[in-house]
């Protein structure tokens, strides 16, 4: 039995125990084992500490957001949202625009307004000045641009006064002063002769039958052309039913433009030059009306 036991090789652990039990130290391997054991334990403990620290950090960071908490802005009211939207559009869509304002009226009768930029007009803005207003008043009442034949100015129709009715405003001294001051610098475009001579529409004329003018072969004079081109505030003065007050304000003269007017009286009645003698009696000019010129039908 003992021989068998002695013949057996000890395991490394048993060898270590045997080595520690020896009364004398073995010089070679035993020294290395004693030196290596503390190193291993230190490394192991260091690893455990590192893992523990990582776990601690992980557990501590769990449940917390890595960045700052997101604070949601308070919801904007309708008017503030409208102003914000308008400002965004003003800066991104229309950069350089002076200013914009917007107003919204909802179904529940609530009014929301917003404005950005400059709320006043430009310094020399013609649209917002008194000059623009007077210019609009001076050009708006009579003839629209579409009804005026090319080459003739607005006043060419108006000055042929048998065809249209001047208003008291036009015949005032203020108007004449402005015309005189204008003609001092040169020939006024308002006094330019017409390119063609209009005449009064008579029964049987076919130049403007109108919407229902010529039926069953019977030519009927129509006021369609007149009604088409007269708009706005002065429209009633161009209709067939003028008030007696307006009729009294007009000068007594024939509708052909003053051929029977005494010289020096009336509007352009006594002129020897130009077209002031009357629309139908200008020497050297054709007296036939231009077919299709609807503005000549104003003599109603």
């Amino acid at each position: 039995m003992e021989g068998k036991a002695r013949l057996r090789y000890p395991t490394p652990r048993a060898r270590g125990r045997l080595a520690g039990a020896r009364p004398w130290p073995e010089v070679g391997a035993t020294r290395q084992d004693e030196i290596a054991r503390p190193d291993l334990s230190l490394v192991r403990s260091a690893r455990r500490l590192a893992i523990l620290a990582l776990l601690t950090v992980a557990v501590a960071s769990c449940g917390k957001e890595p960045t700052a908490p997101l604070v949601e802005p308070p919801p904007l009211g309708p008017e503030a949202a409208l102003a914000q939207r308008l400002e965004q559009g003003w800066t991104s869509v229309t950069p350089g625009l002076r200013g914009v304002s917007v107003a919204v009226l909802t179904r529940d009768e609530k009014l929301y307004t917003a404005a950005v930029g400059v709320s006043a007009g430009a310094e020399n803005s013609p649209a917002l000045s008194a000059a623009h207003r007077s210019r609009t008043r001076a050009t708006s009442p009579y003839v629209s641009s579409s009804a005026t034949p090319p080459g003739s100015s607005i006043t060419s129709t108006r000055t042929c006064s048998g065809t249209t009715r001047p208003t008291p405003r036009r015949r005032s001294g203020r108007w004449r002063r402005s015309s005189a001051s204008r003609s001092a610098t040169g020939p006024s475009p308002r006094r330019a002769p017409p390119t063609h001579t209009p005449r009064r529409l008579q029964l049987g004329d076919e130049q403007d039958p109108g919407p229902g003018g010529k039926r069953f072969g019977i030519p009927l004079p129509s006021l369609g052309g007149v009604r088409r081109r007269v708009h706005g505030f002065h429209a009633h003065r161009h209709g067939p039913l003028r008030s007696s007050r307006v009729r009294r304000a007009l000068p007594r003269r024939s509708v052909h433009g003053g051929a029977d007017t005494e010289p020096g009286q009336g509007r352009g009645g006594g002129r020897t030059t130009g077209w002031g003698r009357g629309c139908g009696s200008v020497p050297g000019r054709p007296t036939t009306a231009t077919p299709g010129a609807s503005w000549a039908t104003a003599a109603s």
Partner: peptide
């Protein structure tokens, strides 16, 4: 709904706005 807009000036992108 009624919407009114006005601009104090002219701009090419007024319609877009």
């Amino acid at each position: 709904l009624t919407i009114a807009m006005a601009a104090n000036g002219a701009h090419d992108s007024w319609t877009t706005l």
